[in-house]
Nucleic acid binder design. Structure first.
Lengths: 136, 136
DNA sequence: CTCATCTGTAATTATTTTTATTACAGTACA
DNA sequence: TGTACTGTAATAAAAATAATTACAGATGAG
């Protein structure tokens, strides 16, 4: 999935936080983020699956935070939308006849998991509440 | 640019390290990485611009490391291929009429630079020599 | 000096990924 | 019972990536 999932997810969460418990429609979210409402609803599904938000169907429905913003840290958010390696991946299978090609993916994986761990540790220092507090 | 630039660059550097100073053609590199030679030559240009490699034109030409593998740290390599935010970006401009939309990019930037700093710090703990030493 | 083998680079095409759109069933409020 | 939502699938459009083709220029070998 897309590289812009993290910003989209965080944007959604920030807006829901702003709403202070009131439900917010996907159309409204889509209007602020300026993307298609269907994409919003898909991302909401994911955020729901991870327990960050919940939503209400039907007229007057929409989404809302399912936990306190202080209890959502950004490392978890990153984790919930993470789809591929931060540092990218070889698309084609490297040549198995080459000693380097044959082993590189495993060594990249090792490198990536350490690097990604450092990234997540950094993100985890902040909660959604911290992030949202920066908005005036 | 592509998300697979980092693995490609590191793969190239590892192969050049393996060659111990002998020149390596873009066709050979392309064969191990299993991508098009033109892409290799483009990435080589970038690696050259950053002083990691050098190349020789003409018959029998190719590329070689321009510095000792111990003096190339992976944070620098990441930096040289970095093209976009690690955590992704909003593609469309968020709605400037929305208080959140209006400010989010600046707050994302702050968040990203800290996170990316942590990532680079982690990568910088290893040199190309360390990475290459893992291959049998 | 000329042929063969490379790099450097641009231009084009193909492929893949991402995003938008359309459509509609189901839910819930009024 | 109509209206305004969500959830979800299917399709189309757009954008990003990668491959291909092409060729000028460099360099070494004979």
């Amino acid at each position: 999935m897309s590289t812009s999932r993290f910003p989209i997810a965080l944007h959604i969460l920030t807006l829901l936080n702003e709403a202070k418990g009131n439900v917010v429609s996907s159309a409204y979210l889509a209007g602020s983020i300026n993307i298609n409402p269907v994409l919003i609803r898909k991302e909401i599904m994911n955020l729901r699956k991870h327990g960050f938000v919940d939503s209400k169907e039907g007229k007057g429905g929409g989404s809302f935070l399912a936990k306190n913003a202080k209890d959502i840290n950004l490392g978890e958010v990153y984790h919930s939308v993470r789809s591929s390696n931060v540092l990218g991946q070889h698309k084609n299978e490297p040549n198995p006849k080459c000693p380097v090609g044959r082993q590189i993916n495993q060594h990249l994986d090792t490198l990536y998991s350490a690097a990604e761990h450092a990234l997540i540790a950094n993100l985890s220092k902040q909660t959604l509440a911290d992030f949202a507090a920066r908005f005036e």
